[in-house]
């Protein structure tokens, strides 16, 4: 093991970024499980009719699971895109503007998702 005796790291508050790190992994596991279930559905059903498609999204349980999946996608995307913006966009004004745009689009996607799932 490497032991660090002296560091110039700026103290920025306890556990800084730890919550995002964990949230990214929890959402990843939720998405992976849902993706495997969806994949299984398409493998078992070779031909999907409009009636099958409607019936699948007609189930209240499936709608809730689908929304849980989509919210995981949006939260996961927020953390990932934020990491990318923090790494490559150095001017604060531009970075914050882009981050606000990303948040607004992800909140819009969430509202749109609910509208789609419960429109039936």
């Amino acid at each position: 093991m490497v032991s660090i005796t002296k560091t110039d790291k700026q103290p920025v508050g306890a556990h800084y970024g730890w919550r995002e790190w964990l949230a990214q992994r929890v959402t990843a596991v939720i998405m992976a499980l849902f993706a495997i279930i969806i994949f299984g559905f398409f493998v078992i059903k070779s031909e999907i009719s409009y009636q099958d498609w409607k019936a699948l999204f007609g189930s209240q349980l499936f709608r809730v699971l689908a929304l849980l999946f989509l919210i995981s996608v949006y939260y996961h995307a927020w953390i990932g895109v934020r990491d990318v913006l923090m790494d490559y966009i150095k001017p604060t004004a531009i970075r914050v503007t882009l981050q606000v745009m990303v948040i607004l689009s992800l909140v819009s996607f969430t509202i749109w998702s609910i509208a789609i799932l419960w429109a039936q």
Binding site: Y50, W53, K54, F57, V73, Y74, A77, G80, V81, V84, V102, F109, W112, S113, I116, A119, Q120
Partner: peptide, 22 residues
Amino acid sequence: TGMVMFLFMIPLALYLLQATLK
């Protein structure tokens, strides 16, 4: 691939989901 999914795939998938269920 993460950025591609955020920029293109998420909006496209939502649009297709809406259009195919409607």
